[in-house]
Design a protein around this nucleic acid. Structure first.
Lengths: 246, 246
DNA sequence: GAGTTTTAAATGTCTGACAAATGAAAATCG
DNA sequence: CGATTTTCATTTGTCAGACATTTAAAACTC
């Protein structure tokens, strides 16, 4: 964490990078206090606004937290699962939304990863997880539920399944895959019949989790993936066949 | 994307959040140009440095890119797989490094996700993927290879396996899980014997991929997970029994 | 000794300014 | 007239200095 070449372009990015490297290499550890903005400005031979821009970059990635007042400053922040979660969802959502990722590709990735949780979920699911899954199934069956609310409940159900695996790293990684799909799922209109099919599969998953039968969860997830992709295709086909009248 | 309450705390964070929401909701799409810093300052009734801090936050997340000069400015940036990849690795590495995540937990999550790619990899692997895997296996057998280089080659091998699944979303999600493990793996010293066992399993995986046998890949990955966790445990036990002499 | 006040240090923000880059329009030249 | 060069306005990048606000430690009072 020393120098910037006298290349006067992107000074704040260079400084942010230097500090980020120091954090990732372990030279700076959680709780450490960075020098004050004035000291950093002197150290890097730049002005205070430039230092501040660098610090804001780091703050945007939850690498530091700042505190005002005497003996305040910028402190290395412990990246919580919560923060990592939020960043993961933001990044995944944008990646899917901006890159014309096909529904099939996203769906395939999501269910592949979710099936990876099935065995562990069967092994470790708690009564709490089961209760959450049952509650969401009940909600999904309520009449008058909007498509958006149905999707939100679907996400909550699958989150419960993922969390049941009892591995926070897995939960964090899956958060992006499951939640980033929601904008894509919201483009689908769910008929009463397709809702019924989904709910039935959710019930089979919950039953299998209760019976601690991982293979059964996987089988149900495979059916769910198949149904979802077919439903999406039929919706998109119908939409393509009838171009918007405008 | 309108207002900030007259709460004069974290103005730049509020502005960044407002613009981020506008991007994620689709109100701003890729290629759109934001108003100039001066215009944004007037719109939000703040000074230009405050606007700049907000823009730097967004730039840190690769949401915008800036261009100097006339008709330059801040443009909504298409989040590429490459950018998302890099962010994913940064976040995952820090999450594992800062939170005392046990080796077992990280290892379990990683192999669970990797097994999720096995079936697709068997189906879609190209000769290129096989060649990469074989090349890394060869490198891993070379004498005099440092532990660090061995780990790097191990990561490259597993990346090839993940990429063989032919799903860019899956590759992006797995990048964090696989690469973030490297600092943890680097803490292990690999004996010649354990290297041999790992290489043998890698060969079995490559063979299975060549034969398009997904179940065999999964079986080898399960053995690899078991061996890796056992190896790590023995290393850590030995280290705990003989506290550092200092 | 407990409670209050003072004070110094640090971030948050603003104003004003200049440098550098950049593309478009205008001016110039063949 | 066409091609090239020059000019120029716009915008980001950076700097300097200043003031407001927050905060916790230190000094002070009773």
């Amino acid at each position: 964490m020393k120098i910037d070449p006298d290349n006067p372009a992107d000074l704040s990015a260079q400084i942010a990078g230097a500090i980020r490297d120091a954090i990732m290499s372990g030279a700076l550890i959680v709780g450490d206090r960075l020098p004050s903005e004035a000291e950093l400005a002197e150290q890097f031979a730049v002005s205070r606004p430039t230092v501040r821009e660098a610090l804001k970059r780091l703050a945007a990635q939850s690498l530091i937290r700042t505190q005002r007042g005497a003996f305040g400053g910028a402190f290395i922040h412990r990246l919580s699962y919560r923060d990592a979660h939020a960043q993961q969802i933001t990044t995944s959502t944008l990646l899917l939304g901006m890159n014309d990722v096909s529904f099939d590709t996203a769906c395939e990735a999501r269910f592949a990863m979710e099936r990876a949780c099935a065995m562990l979920a069967a092994l470790r699911r708690s009564p709490d997880h089961l209760a959450t899954m049952r509650a969401e199934i009940t909600r999904q069956g309520q009449p008058g539920l909007t498509d958006e609310a149905f999707c939100a409940s679907d996400v909550a159900f699958h989150r419960a399944l993922v969390d049941a695996a009892g591995n926070p790293v897995l939960s964090y990684q899956l958060a992006g895959a499951v939640e980033a799909m929601q904008p894509l799922m919201n483009m689908i209109t769910f008929s009463a019949r397709s809702r019924g099919a989904i709910i039935a599969l959710h019930s089979r998953i919950a039953d299998a989790a209760q019976a601690r039968d991982g293979a059964l969860i996987i089988a149900a997830l495979e059916e769910l993936e198949h149904d979802t992709r077919q439903l999406a295709q039929s919706v998109f086909n119908a939409r393509a066949a009838r171009p918007k009248p405008a």
